[in-house]
């Protein structure tokens, strides 16, 4: 697969001297969903704004569809659809009027614009409500029309910055389906989120960013394999993990029980079961846990609060 986007050694420092992006580089293949994960202030939004031509990088280069992105507004305007973290629509105007406005800004006119408005409204499931002011929409509807505005010009790359914050499960599910459909149609997606289960459900490849640097990158399964171990979760009255358990990498208290990580999950399960049988403790839960992105994320970025 060809790389739609190549990001090479991008550096961005803000006026306050804060280094937001520190020599980040990655490639995004055509037709995949690429996840950008990281805590608040990690540099995700800055990077997405650089890719969308909203702000300029201090150093480094980006190429889109094989062409350098720097100062090429036409390349960005034609092929990139950017969806900001906040809903950016005119609340007093109707959904259709907003789409008409954005369509014009993407250079669409006449019957082509009308057709595209109808198509994206259908895609986001808002055809029936399109003539009502956006201010009367629910949070989920606003998010969906916000995405629709970025799809009018059939972009090859869609940049979605936390598109599901604060919405109902139905709207979230609808957005997921839209993203899967876009992928099937060959559209490439960059998706930023705080929700690891979203990244696991949608992203083919991902990069975890912290303090402006990539701390893990690659296909989802590779990142999981590289940074996480399978584990056994045990919840038993009065039971503590014995020190002589073999091949254990890490033991940590979790909820009302223990999470025991090790290279060989079956061996671990066997040893723990034997110990529980011998000690006679009442077992409330005993289960194998697959490596989760959530645990990898916490392991790589730490548990310290990020209030930036």
């Amino acid at each position: 697969m060809n790389a739609v986007l190549k990001v090479d050694q991008i550096v961005k420092t803000y006026g306050t001297g804060r280094l937001a992006v520190d020599r980040i580089g990655f490639q995004v293949k055509e037709g995949i969903c690429f996840g950008l994960l990281g805590p608040n202030g990690a540099g995700k939004s800055t990077l997405m704004k650089i890719i969308s031509g909203i702000i300029k990088a201090d150093q480094g280069s980006i190429s889109l569809l094989g062409q350098p992105l720097a100062a090429n507004r036409e390349l960005i305007g034609k092929h990139v659809g950017y969806v900001a973290q906040d809903v950016t629509l005119y609340e007093q105007l109707t959904g259709r009027q907003n789409l008409h406005f954005f369509g014009k800004m993407y250079g669409l006119n006449g019957s082509q614009l009308k057709e595209r408005i109808s198509e994206v409204l259908e895609k986001v499931g808002l055809t029936d409500r399109s003539n009502e002011p956006v201010m009367s929409y629910s949070g989920g509807m606003k998010r969906r029309i916000n995405i629709a505005a970025a799809l009018l010009h059939k972009p090859k790359l869609v940049v979605l910055d936390e598109p599901t914050v604060g919405i109902d499960p139905q709207s979230r599910n609808h957005i997921f389906e839209m993203i899967r459909q876009m992928k099937r149609e060959g559209t490439t997606i960059i998706y930023s989120t705080h929700y690891m289960e979203e990244a696991e459900a949608l992203c083919d490849e991902l990069a975890i960013i912290d303090h402006g640097k990539i701390v893990a990158e690659g296909p989802l399964y590779e990142v999981l394999e590289q940074h996480a171990l399978p584990a056994v979760y045990v919840e038993a009255d009065g039971w503590n993990p014995p020190s002589e358990l073999a091949a254990v990498s890490r033991i940590q208290a979790q909820n009302k029980g223990w999470l025991i990580e090790g290279e060989n999950a079956l061996q671990l399960l066997h040893d723990v079961s034997n110990d529980l049988l011998q000690s006679g403790h009442r077992v409330r839960a005993l289960q194998l846990q697959q490596p989760s992105l959530d645990s990898v994320f916490m392991k790589l970025t730490g548990a310290a609060l990020r209030d930036e």
């Binding site: 960005i76 034609k78 990139v80 973290q85 950016t88 993407y106």
Partner: peptide, 14 residues
């Protein structure tokens, strides 16, 4: 403040 101006910078609008 709404981010509209930033968003419009990613379009073809001069």
């Amino acid at each position: 403040e709404s981010g509209m101006l930033a968003r419009l910078r990613s379009t073809l609008m001069p």
